[in-house]
Amino acid sequence: MQKLMINGQEHNLDVADDMPLLWVLRDVMGLTGTKYGCGIAQCGVCTVHLDGQAVRSCVLPVSAVAGRKVTTIEAVGEQAVGQAVQKAWLDHEVVQCGYCQSGQIMSAVALLQEHPKANDEQIVNAMSGNLCRCATYTRIRAAIKSVSQA
């Protein structure tokens, strides 16, 4: 039995210790906003927040998050920075196919929570682990900058 705090709610789930958090979110809880890409921490689509930090849920055993706060794309809009980022994403029409975007937004929000005035270098360092096969990178950067300079 795993006691998890996901999006502000406590859940007691009967899942194996080593089940990746991504699997728990998608298959057990039905929170399918977080996507599955590579499964080896290389693409970033599965990014969620663990105590506010962006982590790759595909390589995070559920036992490692016990007692810590997990936030997924479904709830990130409840935070002020999350809201601002989602609005900027719409204003800049960042999304193309959308597959990578929940991960991009989660990484961007974690960055801006830590560095509200993130500069170009900080943006590159924080975002380059998130791949986008539609290559929306320039729009992603513009959207983040619009928030960090606001």
């Binding site: 921490a41 970033g44 790759r56 390589v59 995070l60 360092n125 682990g129």
Partner: peptide, 14 residues
């Protein structure tokens, strides 16, 4: 590398 190791080398999730 950053996805797991972080640019400050602190290790992201483990």
């Amino acid at each position: 590398c950053v996805a797991c190791h972080q640019i400050d080398g602190s290790g992201r999730q483990s």
